[in-house]
Lab assay of single mutants.
Amino acid sequence: SRSVIRSIIKSSKLNIDHKDYLLDLLNDVKGSKDLKEFHKMLTAILA
């Protein structure tokens, strides 16, 4: 869910600018399909 993804971003080791950017992107995501794609992208970034 959106709140879980937000929590993953906030607890990541990324610097604050990257976190803010990803949180802004997350706010722009519409629909469950796009949310799944965003989660895939985030997982790849944090891997």
Rank of each mutant, 00 (worst) to 15 (best):
S1E: 11
D28N: 14
L25N: 02
L22I: 03
I8L: 14
D17A: 13
T43K: 12
S11K: 12
I9C: 01
S12N: 02
R2V: 08
H39M: 15
S12D: 01
N27P: 02
L25W: 07
A47F: 10
S12E: 02
D20E: 14
L23P: 00
L46N: 01
I5E: 02
A44T: 10
L42I: 10
D28P: 03
T43I: 14
I8G: 01
H39N: 07
G31S: 13
H39I: 13
L42N: 00
D28V: 09
S32E: 13
D17L: 11
K13N: 14
H18L: 14
L42G: 00
S3Q: 13
K30E: 07
N15R: 12
S32P: 12
S11E: 09
S7W: 15
I16T: 12
K30P: 03
I45Q: 03
R2S: 04
L23N: 04
L22W: 04
G31C: 05
R2Y: 12
S7D: 12
T43Y: 13
D24Q: 15
A44F: 14
S1Y: 15
I5L: 14
S1R: 12
L26T: 01
L46I: 09
N15C: 08
K13M: 09
F38I: 02
R2E: 05
L42Q: 00
R2Q: 05
D34Y: 11
S3V: 09
G31I: 04
L14Y: 04
G31M: 05
F38E: 01
L22Y: 04
H39R: 14
V29W: 04
S32A: 13
K19N: 01
D17E: 14
I9A: 01
L14H: 01
R6I: 07
K36R: 12
Y21C: 05
G31D: 10
I45A: 05
K36W: 10
E37F: 11
M41T: 06
S11L: 13
N15K: 10
N15I: 06
S3P: 05
E37I: 13
L35G: 01
N15H: 13
M41E: 04
E37Y: 10
Y21W: 09
I9M: 01
R6H: 05
L26V: 03
L22G: 00
K10I: 14
K19M: 06
V4T: 08
S1G: 07
L46K: 01
L14D: 01
S32V: 09
Y21A: 08
S11I: 05
